[in-house]
Computed example of a mutant assay.
Amino acid sequence: RSSGRKQVIASAIEHPSVLEISPDDPKISVTANGVVELESLSKILRRRGRFAVVSVMAANNESGVIQPIKEAAECAHAAGALFHCDAVQAVGRIPIDMKRLGVDMLTISAHKLGGPKGMGALILAEGMEIEALIRGGGQERRHRGGTENIPGIAGFGVAAREVQEKRLTIGQVANLIGILERRAVAAVPDAVIFGEDAPRIANTSLLALPGVDAETQIMALDLAGIEVSAGAACSSGKVGESHVLQAMGVADELGRCAIRISFGAENTLEEVDKFIEVWSGLRKRAG
């Protein structure tokens, strides 16, 4: 803040918790598959002066598309900016090595690993220093004063350890998502899988059923005991325009028909069959 630089330049598909930090600054554009365009980042850095931080997520929370973090960090550092990566959606699903990627700051969240809600971590590169978020105590290496949530921290640690132990199950999850997507397109040939041609994390699919809005899909699937969301999971129950799909150039009419499906190690092929039956039935009823 004291540098006089603008605060943050972020991609157009970041989580609102990042986008709303600096809403008026230019956003890095993405391709039709939802991949950050490095040339867009370079142009912004050249034309708009110096920024304090560039922020790009490791994998998008709606589409699951994996982003070119190493290359984006190199662009940021070449312009004299620090680089932050929101790895909440990616940790436990793809390898994350801060040093190899060149990331200065990395954020993760326990609940995405199966840990307790409300617990997160900001991981700093060696030698990196930041101002205290809450002053008045020596906790969290003087970065956040106040009594720690010991049960939450312990739960976070257990979840992180178990993710390491269960990392081989990600192949099973990827197989189920692949089966679901193939069966969805077979049942409804004009169904759209967003980010289909880009690298994606194994557990997430963003799928549109043209002609049937997301709210209708969510309600029907919920009645069948299947939980999905419209866009970001933290926006479940709210059906509105997806800023991620808008950034990808998707027409609002089609974007309103998109749902996000997430799988875990406990999901089964039988659940895929049930999803396809209920979901494709909506299209048949819609004519």
Rank of each mutant, 00 (worst) to 15 (best):
I21A: 10
S22V: 03
P23Q: 07
P23W: 01
P23A: 02
P23F: 03
D24G: 04
P26T: 04
P26S: 04
P26H: 06
K27L: 13
K27N: 06
K27V: 05
I28F: 03
S29K: 12
V30D: 03
T31M: 09
T31H: 06
A32C: 06
N33Y: 07
V35M: 12
E37N: 13
E37M: 13
L41N: 07
I44D: 07
L45A: 08
L45Y: 05
R46H: 08
R48N: 14
R48M: 06
R48Q: 13
G49D: 13
G49W: 12
R50T: 11
R50G: 04
V53Q: 09
S55I: 02
V56D: 12
V56L: 04
V56W: 05
M57P: 00
N60I: 01
N61H: 01
G64I: 12
V65T: 11
Q67D: 02
Q67G: 08
P68A: 13
E71R: 09
A73T: 04
E74N: 04
C75A: 11
A76Y: 11
H77K: 14
A78N: 02
A78W: 03
A79G: 09
A79S: 15
A81Q: 04
A81M: 05
H84L: 12
C85E: 11
C85M: 14
D86V: 02
D86W: 11
D86E: 15
V91N: 06
V91S: 07
G92C: 02
R93E: 09
P95H: 07
D97G: 06
M98K: 05
K99R: 14
K99L: 14
L101N: 01
L101D: 10
G102Q: 10
G102E: 10
G102D: 05
L106N: 02
T107E: 14
I108L: 12
S109A: 15
S109C: 12
A110M: 11
A110G: 07
A110T: 07
H111Q: 05
K112E: 15
G114W: 07
G114Y: 02
G114K: 02
G114S: 08
G115D: 12
P116Q: 09
P116R: 05
M119H: 09
A121T: 08
L122C: 06
L124A: 02
A125S: 15
A125M: 11
A125Q: 13
E126M: 10
E126F: 05
E126R: 14
G127Q: 09
G127I: 10
E129N: 09
I130P: 00
A132V: 12
L133V: 15
I134A: 10
I134F: 09
R135D: 06
R135V: 14
G137Y: 03
G138L: 11
G138P: 01
Q139L: 05
Q139E: 15
R141N: 13
R141C: 08
H143P: 00
H143T: 04
G146S: 01
E148H: 01
N149R: 11
I150S: 08
P151F: 14
G152N: 12
G152Y: 13
I153G: 00
G155K: 02
G155W: 06
F156G: 02
F156Y: 15
F156I: 09
V158L: 13
V158A: 10
